[in-house]
Design a protein around this nucleic acid. Structure first.
Lengths: 344, 344
DNA sequence: CCTCCTCGTGGAATCGATTACACGAGGGAT
DNA sequence: ATCCCTCGTGTAATCGATTCCACGAGGAGG
């Protein structure tokens, strides 16, 4: 592959001049510029990004470590991140942690070894050594979706509190009183927060959240299935189940179907994170939608700010409830309402 | 960040010796090895992958350019690729082409600039200039899922012909005679092959595939919706629709639901590519499942073979039909069968 | 005792770029 | 005519590793 030396020889100029042309440096004659461009063209020359990075100490690359690529929420996030990064002249390398702290650490170290300019992380746990090290070492870093308390890094996330309140109101309005949640890992902020928000919203209606109605999941479909089976085995099973992410909702659907039960007649279901498939499941699933794309873009902007030496502020965007049929029929058509039954 | 020089100084040895220890070179004294290891530990030193790559001309990185990350099929492929690559000591950088040739070319050139050791591509089109250039320039390369005829590059893919025959047999057995297909872009091999296989299978039953029953899609949900609307507007709409990928099937479902029609009663639906959500859609969708993970792993192995100078053979794995309810009830319970109706 | 290997080590070249510094040519001001 | 700038260019140092080559010490063999 042709190097800058070959171009210099071909153009009859020094490598310094070639480099200047390549980088749009002002003090280059029009003649030299033309000769270099022609030589580049003839040789099909492309600058070696590796060599350039070594010299400039900048790779124009961002690292993104996400918890689980197979989760459509994170895929969408990754896509938005890559788009915004590309618009700002950066590439992104994605590392998939698969909800495993050891894999997360592997990716963080690999990315750091590659000397990426900045790191976007959605931490799987409370803070693996590699990640905390990176944060302390001053690597430009931004947390997205999840974060680690006590670490001084901007956080770009979405606040589901309001939407969870709306969800509980919706469930309450539909007559459900025994509400359960499939929680995410306690080591993650989103794992804890969603439970807290749910409990708080329940409290506003004077409803309890007994321990038996808090199932411990791991954000994967399998755990959603297991936890739901546990709920169904209870002497007094819940009337509604709220899954803290879309994959666990899929697992819950599996478990409910395996029992020959039906949603929402036998049990209501709602999920955190809205995805295109929820429109077409049987029944369509009521979900809390995050502004995923905007989250990804904001995170990249914050990170690039950090890289550029600016502060890079935290961002919190609201999530919103999207009502479908998995919790019961909307009030307008709700047949067993006493008020309506008496009117005709 | 500490460099090899710092380690050498700390250990009281030359950089050459440090490098030898780091790379497990045999002729190093036990004493030197210990001192270097200790110095590395003390300084928290990690070798700079950029510098190493410049010198050795190997990045231990693979590029993967896929057509669309948001498509669960490709996400699963990407995950398998990363896993196998990691097992073999490689990282992978994913480029998402979003079914756009220009984006595909952007990623190919960016990856080449980064001097990746090998390239895995699922081409979006008939061959963009950058990609063909890479192939000609001798970059180790393997096509996965889709390929470009006439280019001398190993192909790892799945053969759907048998499964498509099974599907047509299934549809025929259920009484469907007017069968339509939502095709992928003609520029892709999978776009063409699936139509060909479908037509061939239809022929075996003496069924035609009229032009009006071949809808031109682009592997995205939107096109599935549009094409299906067109089918539904026909004077004689098809009785069954076969979508050439899962996203177009999603779009088809959208369109059918928007008309207030039901699957499979009003129209049957089947898809190429099986995904977890198809179990829970309304109704569960009959699909052709590819051995996606195995495809990804085989592709990586072939590519690494190529990088190591070996041949790296093409691989073709069979797909299989997974019957669910979207084409009609299984024969055992099929109510409107004349044979059964006469018996009671 | 001398020669020849082997072994461990260090010096220095190298990969392909960027960039500080030096230098010569040419133009404007005095 | 002299001086000083500016402009365009080239030389060479540099980034952080790997690796060829040379060298000295020590052991084996003659």
């Amino acid at each position: 592959m042709a190097s800058i030396k070959d171009v210099a020889a071909e153009a009859g100029l020094s490598v310094a001049t070639v480099s200047r042309v390549l980088n749009g440096h002002p003090s280059v004659s029009e003649d030299a510029r033309r000769r270099v461009t022609a030589a580049v063209e003839r040789l099909g020359y492309r600058p070696n990004a590796v060599a350039r990075s070594l010299r400039t100490d900048r790779t124009r690359t961002l690292g993104l470590v996400i918890s689980d690529v197979m989760n459509p929420y994170f895929t969408e996030l990754a896509r938005a991140v890559e788009e915004e990064a590309r618009a700002l002249g950066y590439s992104v390398i994605i590392g998939n942690a698969d909800e495993r702290p050891d894999l997360q650490d592997h990716h963080v170290t690999t990315l750091l070894d590659r000397r990426i300019d900045g790191l976007l992380v959605s931490p799987t746990d409370g803070g693996s050594p590699g990640m905390l090290g990176a944060a302390r070492a001053g690597t430009p870093m931004v947390f997205v979706d999840r974060w680690i308390p006590g670490v001084d890094v901007p956080v770009v996330r979405s606040d589901g509190r309001g939407a969870v309140r709306d969800l509980v109101a919706h469930l309450y309005g539909l007559g459900h009183r025994r509400l359960a949640i499939i929680a995410g890992p306690a080591a993650t902020t989103t794992g804890r927060e969603r439970v807290d928000a749910f409990r708080e919203a329940l409290g506003a209606y004077g409803l309890p959240l007994p321990e038996a109605y808090i199932g411990q999941g791991d954000f994967q479909a399998g755990s959603g299935r297991l936890v739901t089976e546990g709920f169904l085995d209870l002497a007094e099973p819940p009337e509604a189940v709220f899954a803290a992410d879309n994959l666990m909702a899929l697992g819950a659907l599996d478990a409910i179907r395996a029992r020959g039960m039906r949603v929402p007649d036998d049990i209501a279901l709602a999920a955190f994170d809205d995805i295109p498939w929820f429109v077409h499941t049987d029944p369509p699933v009521t979900a809390i939608a995050q502004p995923t794309g905007e989250l990804g873009r904001a995170a990249v902007r914050a990170l690039v700010d950090r890289i550029g030496g600016r502060t890079g502020a935290s961002v919190t965007l609201p999530a919103r409830l999207v009502v479908r049929r998995s919790c019961g029929e909307p009030a307008a058509q709700e047949p067993p309402s006493p008020a309506r039954r008496s009117t005709p």
